[in-house]
Design a protein around this nucleic acid. Sequence first.
DNA 1: AATGAAATAAGATGCAC
DNA 2: GTGCATCTTATTTCATT
Lengths: 151, 151
Amino acid sequence: MDATDRKILAVLQADASLSVAEIGNRVGLSTTPCWKRIQRLEADGVITQRVALVDPEKVGWGVTVFVAIETGDHSGEWLENFATLVSAMPEVVEFWRMSGDVDYMLRVVVPDIKSYDAFYRKLIAGAKLKNVTSRFAMERVKFTTALPMTA
Amino acid sequence: MDATDRKILAVLQADASLSVAEIGNRVGLSTTPCWKRIQRLEADGVITQRVALVDPEKVGWGVTVFVAIETGDHSGEWLENFATLVSAMPEVVEFWRMSGDVDYMLRVVVPDIKSYDAFYRKLIAGAKLKNVTSRFAMERVKFTTALPMTA
DNA sequence: AATGAAATAAGATGCAC
DNA sequence: GTGCATCTTATTTCATT
């Protein structure tokens, strides 16, 4: 992956609706080689998917909560089961296994506070957890799916 | 926004590379009305953008850190300045203003631990902060940009 | 590897109903 | 909403540098 590939990725991370010709213009390539590079980036799994991003407020899922979980001592099998269970919950949009004091970090979206309570009850009903800390977001100051493409 | 719009959004959140005809098939519409709905959803800002998602590991930004920040007592102007400063950092992919014990939550991506240290120094050099807690992610168990489309 | 041209297929867009 | 015409773009091929 060279610098031109990274330029293409930068463009596609910002706007995947552009034509190949336009992307080529922006990175200094004609359409054919630009198209070939994009195909390769997809085949190599560098580009994983193309998605539409939706305004959370406008679809009624405007409440974001960060959930820090300490699972305590559990078997590998238990943890695997826990991961499967939590991953399957559609409100969980991010689910990270952490190092340090917190074992897992979730980002959860819900329509309102009341439905967060419902989620929380589902969560603790499904698994015996040592500690769960919920922190509510007030404002999304920045959110991007674009990774930096400059070293 | 009716149930059909939500179906369209569910499809486009999962795969924005599908043709309008194929999306129509999946939601029970022919191409023209499906296309019109998509145009409207974009015009109304429900769909905010179409982007390519990239594998963080494969582009060398595989380290994710959650940063919880307590700013302490500061003026509104100071906080605004802080928000602008942090938003401009490309490593910061998420930046949330929180309620409760933590004032801000960041999700930061970096190539490696060493570059996180560089980021951290930049962060604390730019603003006088009361407390900064960095938590490192070990594994991305789930990550989706798709919001639930069912009530 | 890239370019430009060109041909074909697929899809987006617009119009009549 | 449907069906169809048209226009744009994606995709592939090829000769050339």
